[in-house]
C-alpha cells in the first residue's frame, strides 16, 4: 500500500526523462551541460513540451473530477460537456470581431464562452431524470456536436476553417515551444484551486440535501466548479487543441482505487492525468519516429479501450 506513491513517482520521473530525451534530435543523458545546441533544444523545445503535456494532463484530469461531481455522473468529462467547443466559439467570435485584441483578452473571452457552454450543459442535466445515468453523457455529446458544428459553419463562412481546425481536431504537442505554452500554467493553477476546494466538491457529490444540511452553499460551489472546468478547457483547447478521454478515464480509475475523498484523491488524479498524457505523447513520438502521431489519436485508441473496460468490468467486491 505504502509503496504505491513511490512506484507512481518513479514511473512519472521515468516518463519525464524519456520525454526530455526522445525526439527528432538525439539527446543523450548528461549531454545538456556541455553542448550549447543540445541545451537549446532542451530548453526551447523538449522542456516546454514536457511541461505543457504534464500541465494539460493534470489540469484536464482534475477538471474531470470537478465536472463529474457537479453533475454527479461518472460518465462525463470536460471534453464531453460542450465546454471545449464553446471556448472555440468564443475564440472564433473575438477573432472575427476584434482580431487585434491581445492574447489575454482572447483567453478571457474563450473562458467566458466556455463557462456559458458549461452552464448550459448543467442546466440541461438538471432537467434529466436522475436514474437515467447514460442520458447525461449523451446530452453532453449532443451539445458538443451542436456547438462544434456552429463553430465549423461560422469558420467556413468566414474562411477560417484551417485556423479553427487546430482547436477542434485532436490535439497535439509538436508545435509547443518556449513562449507558446505558458498560459497552461493558469490551467494548472485552476486545478490547484480545485484541490483547495476539494472537500466542497466531495460534499456537493453527496447530494443537495446533505450538502445543505452541512451548511454548504451549493450555488457557490457550482460556480467555482464551472470556473475551474471552463478555464482549464479554454486554455487547453486554444493552446494545444482537444484532448479526449483524460478527464473521463483518469478520475474513474482513481475513484475505483481510492474512492471519492477528493482531498486525498485529487493529487493522485493530477499525477495520473499527467502520466497518462505523457505516456501517450511519447508513444506518438516513438511509433513512427522521426514522424509523430498526434497524442489525441493515441488517446482516442487507449482511452476508448479503458472506457470500455470501465463500462464492462466485473463488479468488484470487498
Amino acid at each position: 500500500m505504502n509503496a504505491r506513491p513511490l512506484v507512481a513517482g518513479l514511473v512519472l520521473t521515468a516518463l519525464v526523462v524519456a520525454s526530455l530525451g526522445i525526439g527528432a534530435a538525439q539527446i543523450g543523458p548528461g549531454a545538456a551541460a556541455g553542448n550549447g545546441w543540445t541545451a537549446l533544444v532542451l530548453m526551447e523545445s523538449r522542456l516546454p513540451r514536457t511541461l505543457a503535456v504534464l500541465l494539460t494532463g493534470a489540469a484536464l484530469a482534475v477538471a474531470g473530477v470537478v465536472i463529474q461531481s457537479l453533475v454527479r455522473n461518472r460518465f462525463v468529462g470536460p471534453d464531453t460537456a460542450g465546454t471545449g467547443e464553446s471556448a472555440a466559439l468564443g475564440l472564433l467570435g473575438i477573432t472575427l470581431l476584434a482580431p487585434a485584441s491581445p492574447i489575454w483578452i482572447k483567453m478571457i473571452v474563450a473562458s467566458l464562452a466556455a463557462m456559458a457552454g458549461t452552464a448550459l450543459f448543467l442546466a440541461i442535466v438538471r432537467r434529466l431524470p436522475v436514474r437515467e445515468v447514460m442520458l447525461v453523457p449523451i446530452a453532453g455529446l449532443i451539445l458538443s456536436g451542436i456547438i462544434g458544428s456552429v463553430v465549423t459553419w461560422i469558420a467556413w463562412e468566414a474562411d477560417l476553417l484551417q485556423f479553427v481546425g487546430t482547436w477542434l481536431m485532436s490535439g497535439e504537442f509538436s508545435g509547443v515551444i518556449a513562449g507558446r505554452y505558458e498560459l497552461l500554467w493558469i490551467a494548472g493553477a485552476a486545478a490547484v484551486l480545485a484541490w483547495f476546494a476539494a472537500d466542497r466538491f466531495a460534499i456537493l457529490s453527496l447530494g443537495d440535501q446533505v450538502a445543505t444540511g452541512l451548511g454548504l452553499s451549493t450555488r457557490g460551489v457550482m460556480r467555482l466548479g464551472m470556473v475551474v472546468v471552463s478555464v482549464v478547457s479554454a486554455l487547453v483547447v486554444t493552446t494545444v487543441g482537444m484532448i479526449p478521454f483524460v478527464g473521463l478515464v483518469v478520475p474513474n480509475i482513481v475513484a475505483r482505487i481510492l474512492g471519492d475523498n477528493l482531498r486525498a484523491s485529487i493529487p493522485v488524479v493530477a499525477a495520473g492525468g499527467a502520466g497518462l498524457l505523457l505516456a501517450c505523447d511519447l508513444i506518438g513520438r516513438i511509433v513512427r519516429h522521426p514522424y509523430e502521431i498526434p497524442v489525441g489519436v493515441i488517446l482516442g485508441i487507449i482511452g476508448s479501450v479503458i472506457f470500455l473496460w470501465l463500462l464492462y468490468r466485473p463488479v468488484a467486491h470487498g
Binding site: R72, A202, I203, S205, L206, L214, G259, N261
Partner: peptide, 14 residues
C-alpha cells in the same frame, strides 16, 4: 449516496 466514500470518511463530513 452515489459517492464512493469510506464509511469513516462519510461520518467525518458530519
Amino acid at each position: 449516496i452515489a459517492s464512493r466514500l469510506r464509511v469513516a470518511e462519510l461520518v467525518g463530513f458530519g
